[in-house]
Amino acid sequence: MYKAYSLKLNNNFSGFRNKKPKEKKEIEINLSDFCEEDGTIRGDDLIDIWFPFEKYDVFLSHSHMDEDLAYKFSNYLEEKFGIKTFIDSQVWEHMNKLIKKLDKEFAYQEKKGTYDYDVRNVTTAHVHNMLSVALTKMMDACECVFFLNTKNSFVKEIEKTPSNQTYSSWIYLEISNISSLRTLIRREESKIIERGYVHDSVTKASAVTESFKIAYGAEEIKGLPILKEDDLLRWERLSNENRLWGANSLDALYKCVPMKFKREGEK
């Protein structure tokens, strides 16, 4: 990962156009194909099938309630810049489907007609870890991370706690990764020519409601520069003027809205 931005958009952004979601092929597996003779499951092989790794330019972090907006934005990036965007729900199978397969095989007690609670805890923990590792690897491999900053992502205020909090454990993981993953230059940046411009913007956290609530600190989001619709249009213009396409078009974004990570201990 090289750069990260906080994205402030709405569904009426002029750059979006309606497009049918890509059809995702459902995965059907037989767990016996992933088991050794002693019954041990080959976890790495299971991850490769359920959460496969592919090359993407951008990782889009978002609330599951913003999937439609996330998909529209990924279409925009592909059409205007030739950028390939990773959205987990568009590429990977849902983790709950894998958990159910494991539970049916290892946790179901046929005589009682119920599931063993302790075994279910173990299967769920393993699948959550698989997804966590897969997400972290994907974020690390992508050059740029966009965080879709909406009212569905953050808690506005919880009594005396800080304002930047989220109820989503997955958003918590991804935001935490932004501040802890290595930051590397993956390629030589293009030299961008443009007229003078001043960028300044401010973000505010909003509320999200879930049936089961645990709040996680998400203060790292404050350190990310904000992208608004006018920034996207300027990025689009600058990329076109410099004839940039694909990952190279991200260089125009870095020129429009500069950002630098600050690691712990840095001033």
Results as ranks from 00 to 15, higher is better:
2 Y>H: 01
5 Y>R: 00
9 L>W: 05
13 F>I: 04
14 S>D: 02
15 G>T: 02
15 G>I: 13
18 N>T: 07
22 K>M: 06
22 K>S: 08
27 I>M: 02
28 E>T: 07
33 D>N: 12
37 E>S: 12
37 E>R: 10
44 D>K: 09
46 L>H: 10
47 I>T: 11
50 W>N: 01
52 P>C: 11
54 E>V: 12
54 E>N: 11
56 Y>V: 05
59 F>P: 01
62 H>C: 10
63 S>N: 02
63 S>I: 09
68 D>W: 13
74 S>C: 08
77 L>T: 00
78 E>P: 06
78 E>A: 13
79 E>F: 14
82 G>D: 02
89 S>W: 13
90 Q>H: 15
92 W>I: 15
95 M>Q: 13
100 K>I: 06
101 K>N: 10
102 L>M: 13
102 L>C: 01
112 K>L: 15
113 G>V: 14
113 G>P: 08
117 Y>V: 06
122 V>P: 00
122 V>F: 14
122 V>C: 13
126 H>I: 12
127 V>S: 02
129 N>L: 15
130 M>D: 03
134 A>D: 04
144 C>I: 11
144 C>D: 02
146 F>G: 00
149 N>T: 05
149 N>M: 06
152 N>A: 08
152 N>P: 00
152 N>Y: 14
153 S>L: 15
154 F>I: 10
156 K>F: 14
160 K>Q: 10
161 T>I: 09
165 Q>T: 12
166 T>D: 07
175 I>L: 10
186 R>P: 08
186 R>N: 10
189 E>H: 07
196 G>Q: 15
196 G>Y: 10
201 S>A: 01
202 V>M: 12
203 T>W: 05
204 K>G: 03
204 K>N: 07
206 S>R: 07
208 V>G: 04
209 T>S: 07
211 S>I: 15
212 F>A: 08
214 I>D: 15
214 I>G: 02
218 A>C: 06
220 E>C: 11
221 I>Y: 05
224 L>T: 01
226 I>H: 02
226 I>L: 15
229 E>I: 08
233 L>C: 05
234 R>D: 00
235 W>M: 01
236 E>M: 11
242 N>A: 02
243 R>F: 08
249 S>V: 03
249 S>L: 07
250 L>K: 01
251 D>V: 09
252 A>H: 03
252 A>Q: 04
254 Y>K: 15
254 Y>W: 12
259 M>K: 10
259 M>A: 15
261 F>H: 03
